[in-house]
Amino acid sequence: MSGLFDDMLQPLGDKQRDALVSAWAALEYGSEPASEAALPALRDAALRHQLDQMLHMTGRTLVPAGANLWTSGYRDDIAAELVANGWGILPPLERAALILVLIHSVAIPRAEGRLSGDNWQSNHPTTPTQLRKLSQIHGQLRLSEALQRLRTAGLVRTARVPDHETAGSSYIPGPALRRLTPAARQRLQENLILAVGPDTALATAITVRRNLGNSQK
């Protein structure tokens, strides 16, 4: 970070400068969202604006992650550019495994009223039994390797829940999903709807809206 933010930080006093640098590091390198209670630069609106400007310089942005909680993530325009250039796209098996975890840990519990909110955090694990069909298609070793890569990326995490039908780990969505901007969360929710119910009225509405948006660009 040396020199990157000098022009922005130099006019500030030591206390403000230290507060901004500490908050930036916590947001960018912390595995969990940072609390306003612990970081003055998140509590103070003016400092928080400057912090967002610092993040903006590196293609990042502040992301709300709950009551008085913040994290950072890629700006929507930067994320779109990365995807257009083939960066950050999950291979098919990893994408399928992540979709299954999101369906069983988030989408189904939310539809049944057991989970609220629009984020991807859940205490409803996806069990080995629910992942078994995917392992039967691709092989247990390949699926295990794909899940390990998802864990390394922070997209899923293991949960200690016994499964009496199938041996193996259970999974819940990982902390990296909390770095999604509101617009990115909405796209993920819509993609999940398109994946599990492509013939539903809601999926049709999403497809029509997206096609209209693309035609107007």
Rank of each mutant, 00 (worst) to 15 (best):
A183V: 15
P173Y: 02
E145S: 13
G154I: 02
R160M: 06
P125Q: 04
I172N: 08
A167T: 02
T158Q: 10
P182H: 03
T152E: 07
T126Y: 03
A167M: 06
Q130C: 00
P162M: 14
T158F: 04
A184C: 11
V161D: 00
L150N: 11
T126V: 07
A183M: 15
Q140C: 04
L143D: 10
S144C: 00
L177S: 12
Q136G: 14
P128I: 09
R132H: 13
A167Q: 08
K133M: 08
R179H: 12
S169R: 11
R142F: 05
V156I: 15
R142C: 00
H164F: 02
L134H: 07
T158D: 08
Y171M: 04
L134I: 09
I172P: 01
Y171Q: 00
P173G: 14
G168A: 14
R178I: 09
S144Y: 07
G174I: 07
A153Q: 04
S169Y: 15
L131N: 00
T152P: 02
Q148F: 12
T129W: 01
R157A: 15
S135N: 05
R160D: 14
P175V: 07
L131Q: 07
P173C: 05
E165N: 12
P175W: 09
P162I: 13
R142E: 08
L180E: 03
P175R: 13
E145G: 06
T181A: 10
V161E: 10
T152G: 09
Q140K: 12
L177N: 14
H164K: 09
Q140D: 06
